[in-house]
């Protein structure tokens, strides 16, 4: 593997349990700057938990997570400061239903970054316009289609100008015909050089945009490689089984 770029994110032997269930069993992962890493694997394999741990929404039990070489899982780290630099987008959008699109996108910059309202709104409008959502600025989320809601959720994360973006199965809650508009946005971000860790069930998409693909199974990264490697010549029997099921389901 050529590691020409600096390391943006590094996980070292990360363990996480919920009660007696160990959900992450020693994850080691390195993501270079401007890289897109896709996490694939069955539901319950630990993809979402991994992303939530990186955003410090879940505390880890063992191991270390470093962002730009700084350990964010150390004692005394200001979690709010860390999160300002790491965006996360959820499967269920989690937009704020009582706020308009514009208020959703400006809340973070205004309250966490202390931007003046006018400045935050100007930046948000520019962002919304760039991705074709400017005319929805005054709408409440419930008036938007699922695809529009998820695009707004991605822009809400982007408005914080994060160095790292985590996407947690962002198309899994969408009707099939709405998936492509969201994937198109993510593609544009990838082309723009955004560093991303993407948990996804969209294998075709993963093959297109990923620099590296990790196959998670039972809380470990069982196999890791280029999309070419993983999707055409998977080494591990479990990976082969998983991909065979995906192909049988017509999703690759």
């Amino acid at each position: 593997m050529t590691e020409a770029t600096a390391t943006a994110l590094r996980l070292e032997d990360v363990h996480k349990s919920f009660g007696n269930t160990e959900v992450l069993r020693g994850i080691d992962l390195t993501v270079g700057e401007h890289q897109v890493v896709c996490l694939i694997g069955a539901s319950g394999s630990g993809k979402s938990t991994l992303l939530r741990c990186v955003n410090l929404l879940e505390p880890i039990d063992e191991g270390r997570i470093l962002v730009d070489g700084v350990e964010i899982t150390a004692d005394g780290v200001d979690v709010n400061e860390v999160r300002k630099g790491i965006g996360i987008v959820f499967q269920a959008f989690n937009l704020f239903p009582h706020m308009t699109v514009l208020a959703n996108v400006t809340l973070g910059p205004r309250k966490a970054l202390d931007l003046r309202r006018a400045e935050a709104e100007a930046q948000a409008l520019e962002l919304l316009a760039r991705f074709g959502l400017a005319d929805r600025r005054g709408d409440y989320p419930d008036r938007l289609s699922g695809g529009q809601q998820q695009r707004v959720a991605i822009l809400r994360a982007l408005a914080m100008k994060p160095k790292l973006l985590l996407l947690d199965e962002v198309t899994s809650a969408l009707d099939p015909e709405l998936v492509s508009e969201v994937l198109q946005l993510i593609r544009e971000l990838a082309e723009g050089g955004m560093t991303m860790v993407v948990a996804t069930h969209e294998m075709g998409f993963a093959r297109d945009i990923a620099d590296r693909v990790c196959f998670l199974d039972g809380g470990s990264i069982l196999e890791e490689g280029t999309p070419e490697q993983i999707f055409t010549q998977p080494r591990e029997p479990r990976t082969q089984q998983f991909l065979a099921r995906i192909v049988a389901a017509g999703r690759l």
Binding site: R52, L57, N80, K84, L95, G108, A112, R156, A157, M160
Partner: peptide
């Protein structure tokens, strides 16, 4: 709780 998670993930503190 996902609403709280979304707010905190933007870097807002608990009270915000």
């Amino acid at each position: 709780p996902s609403q709280n998670a979304a707010a905190r993930s933007l870097g807002l503190n608990h009270l915000q």
